[in-house]
């Protein structure tokens, strides 16, 4: 008996011969928070649409709660909450009405849907905006309303496609807090992001996706441990000199990445590597020692930065 709520096996989606998703496989356990991390165009949203039972796959197997979404689209979708990349709230309706009409799509009786809408507005910290026009809400508020809408049917799985893209830092933190509470209450989360801090904050486990394929899989900590060092020393010698200095300091640290604006020196002791560079008579314009992040994992795996 399968215990996963989502099982994808060699899942593929092709558009006119181009594979947007190219044979990816993953499982998501109940209550798990699972992330798809990758740059724009990696195939994350296409994967989400297939899992969301709105896009038929070209090949491979996909099971959501034990059902094939191609065969049982409405049944699968009755158990999902979906937060799309761009908000698709109804601008012609007021805030509370958006929740009510959406609740009706799941067959929630009129007598119940109003109470649910009020509770969700409170959860989304939007009770005082219940009668506002959607257009009058800020970006963060619209996002929270979209999340509230996605929860109207008590979903077993919440799909979040780039949930905080375009939001300011404060709005992102408020949203993370709400999502963290959902996670604590046992909702299965599947989210895509190209923000490594978001993935680290929210995901128990994630896959790094690039060009429609999975590059690595694991928890944020295990991926960092496997593909990076404990610390990273960032030094800048000016865009003209970075590549030249990289050759001079070859052998310092476990690995050096040359970026256009800086050098990344991977080591378990950044300060010690900085001392070695200074001892070699090189004075960086700026230096910074930081903890390794998923950005470094992605750089190691693909040779490219996440946000290009």
């Amino acid at each position: 008996m399968p215990t996963s709520v989502i099982t994808a096996n060699l899942l593929t989606k092709e558009y006119k011969g181009f594979a947007a998703v190219d044979g990816i496989s993953f499982d998501v356990a109940p209550g798990e928070s699972f992330g798809l991390l990758g740059p724009n165009g990696a195939g994350k949203s296409t994967t989400m649409r297939m899992v969301g039972a709105v896009s038929t796959r070209t090949s491979g197997e996909l099971s959501i709660l034990g059902l094939d979404p191609n065969e049982h689209g409405p049944e699968v979708r009755s158990q999902l909450g979906v937060v799309p990349q761009s908000d698709n709230l109804d601008m012609e309706l007021r805030v509370r009405d958006n929740l009510i009409v959406y609740g009706r799509y799941f067959g929630i009786p009129r007598s119940e849907v109003g109470k649910k809408a009020d509770a969700l507005l409170e959860f989304a910290q939007l009770s005082d905006r219940a009668k506002s026009k959607v257009d009058d809400l800020s970006g963060g508020m619209k996002r929270r309303l979209t999340i509230a809408r996605a929860l109207i049917n008590d979903p077993r799985i919440l799909l979040l496609d780039e949930p905080t893209t375009g939001l300011d830092p404060q709005a992102r933190h408020i949203l993370w807090d709400r999502l963290f509470r959902l996670k604590e209450q046992g909702t299965t989360l599947l989210l895509t992001t190209h923000y490594m801090d978001e993935a680290e904050q929210l995901c128990d486990r994630l896959v790094v996706v690039d060009k429609g394929s999975i590059m690595a899989e694991g928890s944020p900590a295990s991926l960092i441990k496997k593909y990076s060092t404990r610390e990273v020393l960032e030094v800048r010698f000016g865009s003209e000199r970075n590549a030249q200095v990289a050759e001079q300091i070859a052998g310092i640290g476990e690995r050096i990445e040359v970026l256009p604006d800086r050098l990344l020196i991977y080591s378990d002791n950044g300060e010690a590597e900085l001392a070695r560079i200074t001892a070699a008579g090189l004075e960086p314009m700026t230096s910074l020692v930081r903890r390794s992040s998923l950005e470094d994992v992605f750089l190691r795996l693909t040779g490219r930065s996440l946000i290009e």
Partner: peptide
């Protein structure tokens, strides 16, 4: 108070499938 009922996550796979089948009837 939780605004939604996440306790449903505690059901078995067979129950989850059954819930989905029932959830699709009215829509």
């Amino acid at each position: 108070t939780p605004a939604f009922d996440a306790s449903a996550s505690a059901t078995t796979p067979a129950e989850a499938k059954e819930l989905a089948m029932v959830g699709g009837v009215k829509p």
